[in-house]
Each structure stands twice: as C-alpha cells, then as structure tokens.
Nucleic acid binder design. Structure first.
Length: 288
DNA sequence: CAAACGTGGGT
DNA sequence: TACCCAAGTTT
C-alpha cells in the first residue's frame, strides 16, 4: 500500500513552497503553525511574506507582538501568531536561532503540540516518526480499519496505527507521512472521497468492506455566527487596520450587544492580543 | 475530556 | 442558503 502511495505522491504532490528542499526548519515550523485549522490556499501567500520578511526566528522575535499579529492578517486564531512569536524568541535565545529537531524539545515551545512537533521532526529533519493529523486519521480509519471516517482521537492508538505504516528508512518514512496527509487532502477527503483516483484503492479496507457509513458518534458542529469568536474577530480586525490606537467608542460600533462586546474586548486584553494605552484607547500589543 | 478559539471557501 | 470543514493547541 505504501509503495503505491509513494508512487502517487511522486507524481501528484502539490508544489507547496515549504516543501522545497531548501526550506529551513524555521520555514517548516512557520508553515505548520499557519496550517493549523487553516486551508493551504490562505496560508501560502502569507507564508511567502513571512519568509521574505523574517527569514530566521530572531528576525521575527525582534518585532513587536502587534506587528506580528497584524502580519498574521486574517488567517484566523491569532493567538497562534503570539505563540509563534514567543517560540521564535525562545529558539533565538536558547537554540542558536535554529529550530530544534528533537520532538520533546519542540513540544516545550509555545503553540507546538503533538502534531506540529512530529511534523517538524519529519518534514524539516527527515525523522521517522508518525505524524498524525486529521487527514492521516481519516486515511487510516478507512484504508486500515475499514471505517467510513475516523472516530474520536486516541493518541496512543493513532500513533501506533500510523507508525506501523511507515517504511524503515527515515527519509522515506518522512515522505510517506507527507504522502498520507496529501492523500487525505486531495483524494481521501472528508466529504466526497475521489476513490476512482485513489492509489490505494486495491488495498483499502473500506472498499473491501463495501464502503460502510461512519458508525461512530456524531462530531460536534462548531457555531460561529453570534459567538464570542466572531466578535473578537471583528474587534481585532479594527485594530489591525489602524496604526493609531482606537477609542472605545470606535470599537463599540462593531457589535450591538454591549455585554458581549465588552466581554470579548476584555478577553482579548487577557490573551495579550490587545493592550490599552495610557489615555484609555486600545491597540495591538507593543505598538504605542 | 469538553470547550474555546477565526475565517472563508466549497457543496 | 445553511452547513461542513480546513496540516491543532490550550485550558
């Protein structure tokens, strides 16, 4: 199964810039953080800007938090920008401005969890370690277990299942990890899998089982309209758009419910995404 | 472990 | 038009 997957990947992998051989560990790390819960198409232009502007961790660390949040643009989940900024500072300070290759060391950095640590180890440093994201979990659920979709995550089982698929050679294993993710992104998709084009079709347990429907618990659907997330986004969007601090009265225009609006502004202050100036206005952090 | 956390494109 | 969903992490 892995051999046909590798053949397919060699022919069909997207030409994503962070996959170029010359990409540094820093480039890979930035891409992985940006790609968390965020589509490739939206990440690519921002990633290019960041690499031009901040080619090494210390360059990013030298910026204010506010400038980093502004440059994050509308990628979403802007706390990622703050954490990446903090990770860059730690890498510059404690790791010689080079992204660590050790998984446990990576896990100690802000914003880097089980997925991202292994993705960096594999894709930047060619290590043989299971890289489990939502794509891989879905591919494994179908191709290996014959289920219609992945059930709730189970860290140990997911890691073991994925590790069992990896070739022994580290560099090939890293490519296989990328290929599993690519298959999930392009062919073995969540909604309408393109099984007619699948390189693993002949070995797929889901096909052999007659493509049974997903039997597990329903996945919770995440609301957005009217939530604090939307209001926080609206508030932050105002501050990203101005170099001058904004008055409270300006921010009040983005949402009619005063209680919710104030709660959200307060949570942004708590998160460090917004700061209040000496004269009581509001701005992105570190820019006044 | 569940819930919070942005945003916008595809179906 | 709604709803689904996208390379997760943190609390």
């Amino acid at each position: 199964m892995i051999d046909s997957l590798l053949d397919w990947y060699a022919d069909h992998a997207r030409d994503l810039p962070w996959r170029e051989p010359e990409t540094t560990g820093w480039g890979v790390l930035v891409s992985e953080i940006m790609l968390q819960q965020t589509p490739v198409a939206r990440v690519e232009p921002i990633w290019r800007e960041w690499m031009d502007r901040w080619p090494v961790p210390s360059a990013l660390a030298a910026e204010t938090q506010g400038e980093v949040v502004r440059a994050w643009g509308k990628l979403g989940y802007p706390r990622r920008a703050l954490r990446l900024h903090a990770a860059a500072a730690a890498i510059a300070e404690h790791h010689g401005d080079v992204v660590p290759s050790d998984i446990d060391t990576l896990l100690g950095l802000p914003g880097i969890g089980a997925y991202t640590a292994r993705a960096v180890a594999a894709f930047a440093y060619g290590q043989r370690c299971p890289v489990v994201d939502t794509n891989v979990r879905r591919v494994v659920a179908r191709a290996v277990h014959g289920a219609g979709d992945a059930g709730p995550p189970s860290t140990t089982r997911d890691l073991n299942d994925t590790e069992a698929l990896l070739p022994q050679d580290p560099a090939t294993a890293a490519t296989a990890s990328a290929a599993l993710m690519e298959l999930g992104a392009l062919i073995c998709t969540a909604r309408t899998p393109r099984c007619v084009d699948c390189p693993v079709f002949a070995d797929c347990a889901w096909q052999h089982a007659g493509r049974p429907a997903y039997a597990g618990p329903a996945k919770p659907v995440q609301k957005f309209a009217g939530t604090d997330r939307q209001v926080r986004g609206l508030l932050l969007d105002v501050l990203r758009g101005t170099s001058e601090p904004a008055r409270k009265s300006t921010l009040d225009l983005v949402w009619s419910d005063a209680g919710q609006r104030d709660r959200c502004l307060h949570s942004l202050l708590t998160d460090g995404l917004v700061e209040q100036t000496a004269d009581g206005r509001f701005a992105l952090p570190g820019e006044h």
